[in-house]
């Protein structure tokens, strides 16, 4: 039972850190570059993506023994496209601002390689509960990755963080960081760099984050190698000491 609990936790967390779809597997980069101009858009994209991923993973897992091998991929595509269409309709009806902000990128979730990848690689080989947990982890990991990119881009690109423009059910709030505004939103100074609101800025931020991730990974590997080498040296010294002691006793 304890092992099962640990397995579920590991299954969930792997999508957030060790196998993060965006920063580790470098999948789903197209919407990540296009929809991370603002934090709200990133949250919206992440949310829609997670819903589609959870629904498709669960259904693929449920039908995994019924779908013949020959039509696996077309069947998965039909399932994913169905959920994307439904999510698109619901967004258009109930979150029209998010629908118009994300535009064609909602439809493009159909061809997002993370969704098809998880269906093929995980859901088609595992049970419903495990597939659900896997989708939750991957969805959350992707959403957090989008938010982290959007955080850099929105602050640097517009000088402030805005809430309530896309999710219109929350009051419009602007938090100035690189700008100073009066109460009537008149800008007094503005140190933002609009380049970060453009696709070029998205590439720069993405490259920076990947660079930081690579740096941390390399440092970890170096530390591991150093510790292994120290361990070997310690063992060799111990063995030498033991052999010398044995020689003295003789």
């Amino acid at each position: 039972m304890a092992k099962e609990k640990g397995h579920t936790k590991k299954n969930f967390l792997k999508g957030i850190l060790i196998e993060n779809p965006l920063f580790v597997s470098v999948l789903g980069t197209c919407p990540a570059l296009a929809t991370t101009k603002t934090i709200e858009a990133a949250i919206g994209m992440g949310l829609l993506f997670t819903i589609v991923l959870i629904c498709s993973n669960v259904l693929v897992s449920l039908l995994r023994k019924l779908i013949p091998e020959e039509i696996k991929t077309p069947a998965y595509i039909v399932i994913i496209a169905t959920f994307v269409t439904i999510v698109k309709m619901l967004t258009n009806a109930f979150l029209p601002a998010l629908y118009s902000t994300l535009g064609v990128f909602i439809s493009l979730i159909v061809v997002n390689c993370i969704v098809l990848g998880r269906a093929e690689a995980y859901a088609s080989k595992n049970g419903v509960f495990d597939s659900f947990i896997d989708a939750c982890g991957m969805g959350l990991g992707y959403t957090l990755a989008l938010i982290s990119m959007a955080l850099f881009r929105e602050i640097l690109g517009s000088g402030m963080i805005t809430f309530g423009e896309i999710f219109t059910f929350i009051p419009l709030t602007r938090i100035p960081i690189l700008t100073y505004m009066k109460s009537d939103y008149t800008v007094v100074y503005d140190y933002s760099i609009s380049l970060f609101s453009t696709p070029v800025g998205a590439f720069i931020v993405f490259a920076f984050i990947l660079g930081v991730m690579a740096f941390i990974k390399n440092r970890k590997n170096e530390l591991k190698t150093y510790q292994e080498r120290q361990e070997k040296l310690r063992k060799a010294a111990e063995a030498k000491a033991a052999s010398m002691q044995g020689g003295n006793q003789q």
Partner: peptide, 21 residues
Amino acid sequence: VTLGAIASSSALLIGLANLIT
């Protein structure tokens, strides 16, 4: 038959979503 059943179920679900939205 399998692919037809999946496609039909999809069409039904999309139709239902359209009705709601």
